[in-house]
């Protein structure tokens, strides 16, 4: 009887240990751009669009400057 109880306790501890184990292996906390419900992905997209538009406007500005030089 004693042996049985000890065996059961050991088995139960083993179960607890397993539960602990699975609790430690939930999905890892998202970091970097994936943090904050992935809102920073939106930030990256918005900044990319902004920088692209800036490059376009700068090129346009340069081109008009060149035409101005030629025509004057």
């Amino acid at each position: 009887m004693k042996q049985l109880i000890v065996t059961l306790i050991v088995l139960f501890v083993q179960l607890l240990a397993k539960a602990q184990d699975s609790a430690n292996h939930v999905a890892p906390t998202p970091t970097g751009l994936a943090a904050g419900n992935k809102i920073y992905v939106v930030m990256a997209v918005a900044i990319t669009i902004l920088v692209g538009l800036f490059l376009y406007v700068i090129r346009l500005d340069r081109k008009i400057s060149m035409i101005e030089k030629q025509s004057s």
Binding site: I39, Y40, V42, M43, A46, I47, L50, V51, F54
Partner: peptide, 13 residues
């Protein structure tokens, strides 16, 4: 350019 890039970063953070 500097102000707008700043607001796009700070606006999210």
């Amino acid at each position: 350019i500097v102000l707008l890039i700043y607001t796009f970063i700070a606006g999210f953070l």
